[in-house]
């Protein structure tokens, strides 16, 4: 297929169908075809993480994923209804400045919380920084972002 095809996928719990070219970036499918502009484009080459989304539960950069690879997949973006704990932590800790990196940061922190909530120990700083290493903040508000992640993790624990 070089022609556009009918892409069926689930976005934030809702089944969607869009006609797109097979190599269209998932980022563009979300922002332009589905008008979900929460997902941001920073670098467009996999370095900055602003475009991070979950595909079938895995954190990926949507600028590096082709439409033909997400047929039937479950995609979650910053517009997903179940990110409230992490979003509240960012608000409280002042984890956002200009906000461009924030959607990607929120999803990376959610992945970090999912990974660590069930573990018996606290992640150390190296482990926390490694979990967010794929997300760059041009406003350099890293300390508050790290604080947001710690707060979100604390609240997610039983």
């Amino acid at each position: 297929m070089s022609e556009p095809f009918e892409l069926e996928l689930t976005v934030n719990g809702t089944p969607r169908t869009v006609r797109v070219a097979p190599l269209r970036r998932l980022l563009d499918v979300l922002r332009e075809d589905l008008a979900l502009t929460g997902t941001k484009e920073g670098c467009g080459e996999g370095e900055c993480g602003a475009c991070s989304v979950f595909v079938d539960g895995e954190l990926v950069n949507s600028c590096l994923v082709a439409a033909c690879q997400v047929e039937g997949c479950d995609v979650r973006t910053v517009e997903a209804p179940d990110l409230g704990n992490v979003q509240a932590a960012f608000l409280e800790e002042g984890g956002a400045q200009c906000g461009i990196c924030t959607p990607g940061m929120v999803l990376a922190v959610q992945a970090f919380v999912d990974e660590w909530a069930a573990r018996g120990r606290e992640p150390d700083d190296v482990e926390l920084r490694a979990a967010l290493a794929g997300n760059l903040c041009r406003c350099t508000g890293y300390e508050k972002i790290l604080a947001s992640a710690r707060t979100a993790l604390r609240r997610a624990r039983p």
Binding site: S52, L59, V60, A111, A131
Partner: peptide, 9 residues
């Protein structure tokens, strides 16, 4: 290799 997002793909 890269960071989490890259390692997943």
């Amino acid at each position: 290799v890269g960071a989490v997002q890259i390692q997943n793909r």
